[in-house]
Design a protein around this nucleic acid. Structure first.
Lengths: 131, 131
DNA sequence: ATTGTTGCAAATATTTTGCATTGTG
DNA sequence: CACAATGCAAAATATTTGCAACAAT
């Protein structure tokens, strides 16, 4: 049922996500794809981003800045949000999945996952004296 | 400047937050206060919730369900979001702030805090067979 | 009397959706 | 040819804001 068909727009959305490490919003993806597809609509971008997320080909990042960001790299990794320049960065860090066990220790339900964002100042903002 | 004045509405918002452990949304607070203030407006509720958050008297919880939830208990504690009944629960668990150090180990910026939500099934949903 | 706060409504802003058309298989 | 995907515009959702009236100090 509802077989998936190829579409150049979806393919372009996916390729764009794989070409950047900036965790773009839908609007940013839209702006980028307008070059190749002048008539592409924001609705199509949203539909394809949601499609990719639902099919495990992208991550939806809701870091609380009012925008949903997307990440084409789906291997487990953590994110850092700079409160100054509002960019999201990937973190290379040891796995912290053990916190799920800590959380489940005194909890009657079933903890399946966690959503985790680190916040602070990125290297550039730190050096430029933001505080 | 801009001295804060007392208002019965703000006081009621704060008292309501302190009377529940349900992490209500603005809409829920609004519905609850309409009993005492039939003419209260949603705008007033939002303004007061934001005021309380900015003054450290409430927490804003953005767990990614599309609503911002509020918590009148500002002592450090973690939250669990049930993906079935969509309620937020407090977790009594050991502190995991050490993850900030793990994250900062290979990072050039300054990690100040983390935003953390656990997800899964709460006790009730687990027992009722949700999956 | 001054000005912070409210209620109301309109405005924002982001994301979703209905529908006629286009394109894939 | 069937129907998935698109482009466009309108709708839906959550939150913010302008402004005149009200209320606290």
């Amino acid at each position: 049922m509802a077989a998936t068909r190829y579409s150049r727009q979806r393919n372009a959305v996916k390729n764009y996500l794989l070409s950047v490490r900036t965790h773009p919003t839908a609007e940013t993806v839209y702006d980028a794809l307008k070059e190749e597809f002048p008539n592409i609509s924001l609705g199509t971008v949203y539909r394809n981003l949601n499609f990719l997320v639902e099919h495990g080909e992208a991550l939806r990042l809701d870091c609380g800045d009012g925008f949903i960001h997307f990440d084409g790299f789906t291997d487990a990794h953590n994110h850092f949000y700079c409160r100054n320049c509002r960019q999201i960065f990937d973190l290379e860090m040891d796995n912290v999945d053990h916190i799920n066990l800590i959380a489940n220790a005194g909890f009657d339900g079933k903890i399946e996952e966690h959503i985790l964002y680190f916040r602070g100042l990125c290297k550039k903002c730190l050096k430029s004296g933001a505080r």
